[in-house]
Structure formats: C-alpha cells, structure tokens
C-alpha cells in the first residue's frame, strides 16, 4: 500500500528501459525461455523430435526451450496461436507436412500458411513405408500394382485420417499409377497398421515409426519407402521413386518456423542452434532410434521446400477430388 506512489515511477522506468533495450534485445536473444508449439499430442513423432531438439537447443542457447502441445484440427490450433504470437522469436511452431496439406486442401482458417510465417530450419522427416498385409501375397510394389489392376473391387487402403500425409500419399500413388483404391480412414496410423496386420485392409502408407514393429514381426510386408532416399532402418526396401513412380517424394516432415516479421538476426541465431542441436549426439541417436531422418539447412531452403509441398498437395487433392468444405 504505502509503496503505491512508487508505481508510476517504476512503470516509467521500465518503459524507458524497454525502449532503450529493444535494439539490443536482438543481440541478447534469448533472454527468456523460448516456447515451441507442437500441433500434435505427446508421443507423436513430431512431439518426440521437438522435445529432443528443444532439450539440446536449450543447452546451446543457454536458455530453456519449452515444448507445448496444442493439439487440434490437424495442427491448425497450434498454427493459429503462433500466427497471432509476437514476432520476437520466443514463440515458434514446429511446422509439419500437415500445415502444407491444410493449405493445399484450402481449409477455411484465419491465418495464412506459409504467408504469416518465417522459416527457421528444416528439422527432420519420417519416411512412410508402403506396407501390405502378409496374406495379400505380394512382396514387391509391381506385384501390388498387378493385384490392384486385376482385382474386381478396388483394394482397401487405411490411413491416419482424412487429409493426413498417409491419406494423400496413397491417393498420389493411385493417381500416378492409374489405379482405383478405396479409402478406409482411421484415427491415427497405429490403428490402421493394426487392422492391416489382422488382414482387414490391403495396404497402408504408414509412417515408419508406426510400421516398424509389425514389419519386424512379419505380420505386414514392406514394399517401398516414400522418400527419395531409402530408409536407414530398412535399407533393403526400395523407394517408390526407384520402382513405380519416378519423383515420388512424400514424408511426415517437420521444420521450425517463426511468426512473420521475426528479426533476421534472431532467425539466424535460432537456425544456428538447430544445426548444432541436430549435430549433437543425443539428438542424432534419439532421431535414429525413433526412425526420424535428420535434415537441417538454411531458412531459404525450408521456404522453398514448403512452397513445393503446398503446390504438390494442392494438386494431389484436386486430382483425387478431395474436398473438405
């Protein structure tokens, strides 16, 4: 109570300091904890990768880097929150393939991805594995295509849900090979793989992390992987690109982005921290064990990658006639 008279003076002093320090704020970055928002719940590949990265970035930057899960609406809840956040580098988004698909599907949202964001760095990607049920009797992608063409009913493929990377990858695969398929949506790839292993559906494009267990057990058969490069976990499995569809390149990728207007020096510091974190042993080992391929690179590279992805997915959605409105 009796210090009330001091309050205006303190406010004024803080104000002056704030103005004076705003230019040096960028050099002192970070001077408080940084939060990375993740649009998926804990335990997802994106979440695990974010937590590993954040842990290591914290050590490098000398400030804590926190991960906050804001799941909902295929990561749009988190994306909207970051789009509306201060562009000071303290609130970041782990952008993913879902963001570019959402833009491609033209969901009605109040923000613009990628327009409202500044890329920081690509982080990693989980390849999807084209897996078939064991009793379908196919062991290569060509045999699957033959099966698809001779079957009376279109084959059934499972996915993690409408508008997910596994869904659109399978549609891209079908339209590129001129085959007919029927979509069976699940809540997440784990459920789809479980039904595949039980022989209820015919094939799935499953993120490697969800498929490895059933593959090693032999209840599902890996036919191809979805990145241009073979998966380091399944070196004997060819890529879709080298077998059936030239140029086929999809994955569950993720990269760090900041709100548009974040100062360049801050972005540079963050990018530097990401590269160093990716080189650290904990992150390398954690990524490798979890089946995440390590990426990284400059902000410009991520920007270009995002633009390519957005136009690719928009085309897939159009070709497969997928509308969500």
């Amino acid at each position: 109570m009796k210090f009330d008279f001091l309050r205006p003076a303190i406010v004024a002093a803080v104000g002056i300091l704030a103005v004076a320090s705003s230019s040096s704020a960028q050099e002192n970055f970070p001077s408080k904890p940084i939060t990375i928002l993740v649009g998926f719940s804990a335990g997802s590949s994106t979440d695990v990768a974010s937590r590993l990265l954040a842990d290591s970035m914290g050590e490098i930057l000398g400030e804590r880097v926190l991960v906050e899960n804001r799941p909902g609406a295929a990561s749009n809840v988190a994306t909207q929150a970051v789009a509306e956040a201060d562009a000071d580098g303290y609130t970041l988004l782990m952008g993913t393939v879902a963001n570019t698909i959402n833009t491609g599907l033209k969901r009605d949202v109040s923000f613009d991805f990628p327009g409202d964001f500044t890329p920081v760095s690509t982080v990693g990607a989980v390849p999807m594995i084209l897996v078939a049920r064991a009793d379908l009797g196919v062991s290569t992608i060509d045999e699957l295509l033959a099966k698809m063409k001779e079957s009376d009913d279109p084959l059934l493929y499972g996915s993690a849900g409408v508008g997910t990377a596994p869904h659109l990858s399978a549609e891209l695969f079908a339209s590129s090979t001129g085959t007919q398929v029927t979509h069976v949506p699940y809540k997440g790839s784990g459920d789809a793989v479980r039904d595949l292993a039980a022989g209820r559906i015919d094939f799935v494009f499953a993120p490697q992390s969800s498929a490895l267990s059933a593959i090693s057990e032999g209840s599902i058969v890996p036919l191809a992987s979805s990145l241009l490069k073979r998966s380091s976990k399944l070196p004997d499995t060819p890529t879709v690109d080298e077998t059936a569809v030239k140029g086929f390149d999809t994955s569950v990728w993720f990269g760090l982005v900041a709100p548009a207007g974040t100062p360049e020096t801050v972005i540079a510091k963050l990018n530097d921290a990401v590269q160093k974190a990716l080189a650290s042993e904990t992150v390398s080992k954690g990524f490798a064990n979890s089946g995440i391929e390590k990426l990284g690179g400059t902000p410009a590279e991520l920007a270009e990658y995002i633009n390519t992805e957005v136009s690719n997915w928009a085309k897939v959605a159009e070709d497969a006639n997928i509308t969500v409105e």
Partner: peptide
Amino acid sequence: AVMVGALML
C-alpha cells in the same frame, strides 16, 4: 502412445 515413443527413443 507416449510410452511407446519413450521406448523407441
């Protein structure tokens, strides 16, 4: 799912 994630890590 988190438990599985922790083990895979």
